[in-house]
Amino acid sequence: MKRVYRFMLLLYPRGHRDQFAEEMASVFEQASAERRAEDWAWYVRFTFSEMAGLIAGAAIAWLAERPTAEAPVASALPPELIDAQRLVDVNIAGMVHAIANHQFEKARVHSDQERLARENLRMLREKYGIGG
């Protein structure tokens, strides 16, 4: 279960992971041990609640990372930058879908591709002098 939890932390944006992943995993492990000792039914409920909480939390974290209103509107952006952003979004959607379907290898591939796509996006933003 710990491994699944740690894997699902990949759903979060890198900034959130760098800041909280270790701490989240540690808190999960403590809470998990306590719930398991309480009652099996409670533990199952706890596990589902944790997984749902991670998916919802990751979605909110990604929404919070979206460019603000001060950023240029999409139509004003260079096409290669729009494509790069799309590639990031596609890989995030793929990762969420794969994890929801317990396809963890596929999710890892999407996670790796998302990291590359995000790095590419960062370089393109630098090239065009666009923040966010």
Partner: peptide, 14 residues
């Protein structure tokens, strides 16, 4: 309220 870690750390970040 038995808060999940996802909810807790999302709120802590904000």
């Amino acid at each position: 309220v038995r808060m999940s870690t996802g909810t807790l750390f999302g709120a802590l970040r904000r």
